[in-house]
Nucleic acid binder design. Structure first.
Length: 150
DNA sequence: GCCAACGTTGGC
DNA sequence: GCCAACGTTGGC
C-alpha cells in the first residue's frame, strides 16, 4: 500500500498505533483491499520519495468497510456518487508490525530477479494498493533483514 | 458502448 | 518540474 510520507508515513502509523486507510478512489486498489483478511501482512510503501520504497510491514486489523470520507462534503475524498445506501469506496484498518531499519527501495526491488513479477515493479503501475504473493513477501523481508545486518 | 479528452499518479 | 501511463468522464 502506497502513501506519500509527507501525508502519512510509517512513523505516523507507529505513532497512531493503528489507522484507517481512507481515500482510495480507484477500483483496482479498492478491490485489492476487499480481498484482504484480518492478520494479512501489508508492505507500507513510501511514494514520491528519493528514493521511493518499502518502509516497513503492517497488518490488517479490520477488513474492508465503507470509507466514510467519501460522504463528507468538503473532504478532499468526497465523492457524491458514494452514498450510505450504496457505498462505492472501502477502507481497511492497519496496524504497524515492523519498521525496516533501512528502506527497501523500488530500484532494489526491480533489480531482484526473484521479484520480476511483483506488481509494484511492473512498468506503468499507478495503483496505490497492489497485491503481493507469499514468495514476494518472504523475499522482501529477507532483503530487509540482509540490509539490517550488513 | 466507443473513444477522445482530461486529470492524476508517481518515477525520474 | 517533466511527462508517460493509465483510469475516468462524458459526448455522441
Amino acid at each position: 500500500m502506497k502513501s506519500e510520507p509527507d501525508t502519512y508515513s510509517y512513523a505516523d502509523l507507529e505513532a497512531d498505533g493503528s489507522t484507517y486507510w481512507e481515500g482510495v478512489r480507484n477500483y483496482v486498489a479498492r478491490n485489492a483491499m476487499r480481498a484482504m483478511k484480518t492478520g494479512d501482512r501489508v508492505f507500507f510503501y513510501h511514494s514520491q520519495m528519493k528514493p521511493p520504497g518499502i518502509a516497513g510491514v503492517a497488518e490488517v486489523v479490520e477488513e474492508a468497510y465503507p470509507d466514510h470520507t467519501a460522504w463528507e462534503v468538503g473532504s478532499k475524498y468526497f465523492d457524491p456518487k458514494s452514498t450510505a445506501e450504496a457505498p462505492r469506496w472501502d477502507m481497511v484498518d492497519l496496524a504497524p508490525v515492523q519498521a525496516f531499519e533501512e528502506l527497501v527501495s523500488l530500484v532494489e526491488l526491480k533489480a531482484n530477479p526473484a521479484l520480476e513479477g511483483m506488481a509494484v515493479t511492473q512498468k506503468g503501475q499507478r495503483v496505490s494498493v497492489l497485491p503481493v504473493t507469499e514468495a514476494e513477501y518472504e523475499e522482501v523481508v529477507r532483503m530487509a533483514a540482509a540490509k539490517a545486518t550488513s
